[in-house]
């Protein structure tokens, strides 16, 4: 073994962190691969999207936009709206744990929902940079290989499975369930659902970004209120 024991231990810990989430991403990736070939694109567009854009749910949307020849300006605005939530991820992602420049650059590039959820639901004190980056590499490997398998299977068998639409929802339901458990409070989650419903009513076309922004504003207001001594017990 060339790697030091601690490095190997950290990579093993990353593999345990990724575990079921990685398997889920492989499955989700394979449904993305099915979508790519089902939309009439060559199979290798699945690894191109997943390798270079690497944005999970946004990739499903990009393929749908691309096959109807959507103007690039619209693609740009849609990507900005759907991935706008990533601006908030950097606030709490423990990037300072990653020391090498290459590692930091990759950690930012590969900061997907699942990587952020994994890194922020574990104590920053016990997370090493190696463990964070190795986890991200494993997540992308699962995602890209799932896409290749799904696209090749779709090519070979002309598969069409409508129930696969639900995989994305199931993934985020599971991530939300874990995050709500880890948060140990009900007010924040209720605020989030309320903000999302308001956004659905007032801005159905830009629901995701409006809902996220409302929720962050609501959290900031709540922080201000709870920071005041007289309101602390309210």
């Amino acid at each position: 073994m060339e790697s030091t024991p601690s490095r190997g231990t950290e990579i093993a810990a990353a593999a345990r962190d990724v575990g079921a989430v990685g398997a889920g991403m492989f499955l989700l990736g394979s449904s993305f691969g099915l979508l790519v070939v089902g939309s009439g694109l060559a199979w290798w567009w699945a690894p191109v999207f997943s390798g270079i854009v690497f944005a999970g749910s946004a990739e499903f949307l990009l393929v749908a936009l691309a096959v109807v020849g959507t103007p690039l300006a619209t693609v740009a605005v849609t990507t900005l709206l759907v991935n706008g939530r990533h601006v908030f991820y950097g606030l709490s992602f423990p990037l300072h744990r990653v020391r090498s420049r290459t590692g930091r650059a990759y950690a930012v590039f590969a900061l997907i929902d699942e990587a952020w959820a994994l890194a922020t639901t574990r104590s920053a004190a016990t997370l090493s940079g190696t463990r964070i980056v190795a986890g991200q590499v494993l997540l992308q490997a699962c995602w890209v290989s799932g896409g290749v398998v799904g696209a090749l299977a779709g090519n070979a068998f002309a598969l069409d499975v409508p129930a696969l639409d639900f995989v994305v929802t199931a993934l985020f339901v599971v991530l939300a369930t874990d995050a709500v458990r880890a948060g140990r409070e009900a007010t924040g989650p209720l605020l989030a659902v309320a903000c999302a419903l308001v956004a659905r009513l007032v801005a159905p076309g830009e629901m995701l970004l409006v809902g996220m922004t409302l929720f962050v504003v609501a959290l900031l207001v709540r922080y201000r209120l709870s920071a005041r001594p007289e309101a602390a017990d309210a």
Binding site: S57, R85, F88, L91, S92, D113, W116, A117, T120, T121, V168, T169, F172, V173, L175, A176, A179, V180, A182, G183, E185, G188, P189, L191, A192, V193, C195, A196, L197, A199, R200, P204, M207, L208, G211, M212, F215, V216, L219, Y223
Partner: peptide, 22 residues
């Protein structure tokens, strides 16, 4: 930032779930 780090994750995931069920 510590406060947001503690309270953002669950809310962001829930907004995504509601969005997927829009």
């Amino acid at each position: 930032v510590t406060y947001l780090g503690r309270h953002l994750p669950a809310g962001v995931m829930l907004v995504l779930v509601v969005h997927l069920l829009r």
